[in-house]
C-alpha cells in the first residue's frame, strides 16, 4: 500500500463499536483524526510527544498514545475512547468511582486515564496499590495529586471481584 504525501486517504475503523470512516493525510495524527475528523473530542491532546498520556485511547484493546500513531495506522482497527464508557443507565462503575473519589478536577487528562484504567482492570483483577500507581505513572495530572484515581481504581477492582466471586463459587460448587 502506498499513499502520497498530499493524498487524502479514506480511513475506516471501528470507533466505540461503530464503523466510522473519514479522510486523513499520511501525516495526520490519530488524535487529530479522532477529534477533528470523526468529532470524538473527548480525547484530549496534551503534549504530542507521548509523555503526558492525555490522548490515550484503546487500540484493539490496548491503551495507546493517539499522538504517537498516525490515522492511517488505525485502518481496520478497533478504537475505544472515553465516549464508549458510559452505559445507558449512566456512568460506568469506573466513572462513578472517579466522581466519588474526587479523582478529577479540570478533567483534561481524565479521558486518557480512564482508558488506561479500563485496560488495566481487564488485565489485572486484583491489583496492589503499587501496580495501580505504576500503571497511572504513564499519565500526568497537574490537579489532583493522583490519590483519588488510585483509590477509585482499587475500589472498582474490589467491586468487580466481589461481583464475580459468586459465579466462580457457583462453578466450583457445580464441579
Amino acid at each position: 500500500m502506498h499513499a502520497r504525501a498530499d493524498q487524502r486517504i479514506r480511513v475506516t475503523l471501528t470507533l466505540n463499536g461503530r464503523e466510522r470512516s473519514g479522510y486523513a493525510e499520511p501525516r495526520t495524527q490519530l488524535c487529530d483524526f479522532l477529534r477533528h475528523e470523526l468529532g470524538a473530542t473527548g480525547t484530549h491532546v496534551g503534549c504530542e510527544h507521548g509523555v503526558c498520556g492525555a490522548c490515550t485511547v484503546r487500540v484493539d484493546g490496548r491503551a495507546s498514545r493517539s499522538c504517537l500513531m498516525l490515522a492511517v495506522q488505525a485502518e481496520g482497527r478497533r478504537l475505544d475512547t472515553v465516549e464508549s464508557l458510559a452505559e445507558e443507565e449512566g456512568l460506568s462503575d469506573l466513572q462513578q468511582a472517579f466522581r466519588r473519589h474526587h479523582a478529577l478536577q479540570c478533567g483534561f487528562c481524565t479521558a486518557g486515564i480512564l482508558m488506561s484504567c479500563e485496560e488495566f482492570l481487564d488485565r489485572v483483577a486484583d491489583p496492589s496499590e503499587a501496580q495501580v500507581r505504576d500503571m497511572l505513572s504513564g499519565h500526568l495530572c497537574r490537579c489532583t495529586g493522583y490519590t483519588g484515581m488510585v483509590q477509585a481504581v482499587l475500589d472498582v477492582a474490589r467491586t468487580r471481584r466481589e461481583a464475580t466471586v459468586p459465579d466462580s463459587q457457583q462453578e466450583n460448587n457445580d464441579v
Binding site: T41, G42, H44, V45, V82, A86, L104, G107, F108
Partner: peptide, 13 residues
Amino acid sequence: DDALLQGRGRYAD
C-alpha cells in the same frame, strides 16, 4: 464531573 467523565466537556479546542 458527569460531563467531564464522559468526554463531554467543552474545552476551547
